[in-house]
Computed example of a mutant assay.
Amino acid sequence: MADRTVVITGASAGIGRAAAVAFARGGAKVALLARGEEGLDGASREVAQAGGTPLAIPVDVADADAVEAAATRVERDLGLIDVWVNNAFASVFAPFDEISADEFRRVTEVCYLGFVHGTHAALARMKPRDRGVVVQVGSALGERSIPLQSAYCGAKHAVNGFTSSVRTELMHEGSQVRITVVQMPAVNTPQFSWVRSRLPRHPQPVPPIYQPEVAARAVVHAADHPRRKQYYVGASTVATIWANRFAGPLLDRYLARTGYDSQQTEQPARPDREGNLWHPSDGAQGHDFGAHGEFDEQAHGASWEAALARHPAVGAGALTLAGAAGIVALRRAVGGR
């Protein structure tokens, strides 16, 4: 990644923040796009400390014109864009009928249309040069939805469908531009501290939980080796996707039984919790959240599935076994039905 220009949306925290640092360690020039200026300042410092060249641009990815202007500035200040990583996030944790139309629209604009806008800006520059990579930071929830996250799950499903369509168009054109998806597991990011939530207890990622650096390594690898249609990170991602494909009704019953409690800690929710849906939380709370959330003690620092994905010859069989094991475990969890 030395001297390459990388753009990352949602770069102020979580996976985007960790990926920015990972690219910087390879000597990349990293454009950081996000709303929160406190987080952007912190990310810029970490990129510089890691050996990269940062460029922080406050932008809301829901605004297509703002994304396009940011891309123009990146190429003016850092150079031609080699890699574009779509990662921006927003959500509402609540039953569907407790999410307003405006809230649902906002999540869709960030988590789906934000990826569309980023991809559009990237391809407008990459296709004429016939080179470049777009990496979509996806989720296991884009393959299998869970309760209490209907807006986010819908957006991630849309990203998968949209990306597949664009990929086939690039193939039809014989383009050397590549587009790939990295499907993520539950990750220990600050989103659970600032996401808008109407749950009675504090939200949490569904275990097993992984550190954002695990996700970041997968993003960097996908950018450097975009041969595969998609990458899976975490045993839970593999098991969830396989279970959904081959035992969907069992998974429905399992999630109906466990999906509410597994997304909440035992701590009651703060009554003053507002979330960052409309405004960045770092500015409102006056500090930089960083890449990590509050679940460090529970989070894994490595993923053997992601490691195997870097070696496809041995990885396919192991991932098949992991998926089969997940289905067996699911059948036991729902009583063999």
Rank of each mutant, 00 (worst) to 15 (best):
I327T: 08
T258G: 02
P95F: 02
A299L: 03
C111Y: 05
E305I: 15
V137P: 05
P95Q: 09
E169D: 13
S197Q: 10
A247L: 07
H225C: 12
S193V: 03
A299Q: 01
E305S: 02
L113C: 09
Q176M: 14
V74C: 04
V74A: 01
A302P: 03
D60E: 11
H311I: 14
R198D: 08
Q49H: 11
I209H: 00
V214W: 05
T163N: 10
V195N: 03
A247D: 13
A50E: 06
N86W: 06
A94G: 08
A223S: 14
V107C: 08
R144I: 05
H300R: 15
N244V: 03
R332H: 12
H172I: 10
V206T: 11
R257N: 06
A151D: 12
A223W: 07
P207M: 06
V233S: 09
V6M: 11
E103N: 10
I15N: 04
P185R: 01
V314S: 12
H287N: 06
A299F: 02
E294H: 10
R245I: 05
F104Q: 11
D130Q: 14
F93K: 04
R125C: 06
S281R: 02
A2W: 11
E46N: 05
G248C: 05
T168S: 12
V59H: 01
V116C: 07
L330A: 05
R337D: 11
A20M: 06
T258A: 01
E305D: 02
Y112F: 15
A124E: 15
R125L: 10
N244E: 12
D261E: 15
P205F: 04
G14Y: 04
V85E: 09
Y232I: 03
G52Y: 08
